[in-house]
């Protein structure tokens, strides 16, 4: 934490942390406490009067079927994104680890989507699946399937999941490949001598050994799906149709900025904060474990 050897006490360290602390206070701590504060207030329609209402906002939220629906959508969405992008990345990483020649080239060819902004990713996918024009929608229609994510909630969900997972494959691939390459070759060789074929080795040796990476990525992917996919949702479906893709983060934005329900939006923010804190703890607790492995 602190170096054994350090400089003499002076005013300097305060000056050094000052910028970081000011930014943190002004743009993080203060807004967060404001969110906490607003979550227990109700403001009238003209913003003239505010009333302290204890946990009424939370109570209303928990009785609101839309909120629970949004919760459910978020969970389904996160699960699908994590599952899709991780399994796709895992298979590719296994293959890339197998072929010794060219695994670096494959890495280059696979990691760049990480750099694509969520909104851009959304735009690409929405273009491909555009019901009237999109290449993929056209192909589907040629096969007799009429795709329209603007009307069909299931298709809308599928589309945002694909767009979000597409972007995240890069990250998962990178970490899976690193994890696979850190498994000592001697273990794989020992298993081969014991008579395990390539498929068996994946199940019996590689999967258990790589489980810390898998768990780590699971947490990261859930965080990603919860918070960083806002752009995808905003570009592709705007939460619709009929709230089918209205994830929690999107709902905070639309209720607060579009619906101007400050108290309700603040209460939602507070719940989201609790979720982030929970996930951060899981991540940190786990990071220690990963080191010990």
């Amino acid at each position: 934490m602190l170096k054994n050897v350090h400089f003499k006490p002076s005013l300097l360290p305060f000056l050094l942390v000052f910028p970081q602390i000011v930014v943190t206070l002004v743009f993080f701590i203060w807004p967060a406490t404001q969110a906490l504060y607003q979550s227990v207030l109700v403001e009238d329609a003209f913003g003239l009067k505010t009333e302290f209402v204890w946990f009424k906002n939370f109570g209303e939220l928990f009785q609101d079927s839309h909120y629970w629906a949004s919760f459910e959508v978020t969970i389904v969405f996160s699960f699908l994104v994590a599952f899709l992008s991780m399994s796709f990345a895992f298979v590719l990483a296994i293959l890339a680890d197998r072929v010794i020649k060219g695994s670096g080239t494959y890495r280059t060819l696979l990691i760049w989507p990480y750099a694509v902004a969520p909104v851009t990713a959304g735009a690409l996918w929405v273009f491909m699946f555009n019901p009237t024009l999109g290449v993929v929608a056209y192909a589907l229609s040629a096969m007799g399937y009429e795709w329209n994510h603007q009307l069909n909630g299931g298709e809308a969900m599928a589309l945002v999941v694909m767009a979000s997972a597409w972007k995240q494959v890069a990250y998962n691939f990178l970490f899976f490949l690193a994890g696979l390459q850190s498994i000592p070759k001697s273990l794989i060789e020992a298993a081969a001598i014991d008579g395990a074929g390539p498929g068996r080795r994946i199940l019996d040796i590689i999967l258990p050994l790589i489980s810390p990476t898998t768990f780590f990525l699971l947490v990261i992917n859930v965080v990603y799906a919860f918070f960083e996919t806002f752009g995808v949702i905003h570009a592709v479906t705007a939460g619709g149709p009929a709230g089918a893709t209205n994830i929690l983060v999107y709902k905070v934005f639309s209720d607060g900025f579009v619906g101007l329900d400050l108290g309700g939006s603040a209460a939602q923010s507070v719940i989201l904060m609790a979720i982030v804190i929970g996930l951060t703890f899981v991540q940190f607790k786990y990071v220690e474990k990963r080191v010990a492995y």
Binding site: T24, I29, A32, A35, F253, M273
Partner: peptide, 20 residues
């Protein structure tokens, strides 16, 4: 205090940060 910022992504404090 710096650590806490990890738990406050912009998405969860949109409105009040906007006000600031």
């Amino acid at each position: 205090m710096i650590f806490i910022t990890l738990m406050l992504p912009v998405e969860v404090r949109i409105l009040p940060t906007y006000e600031v």
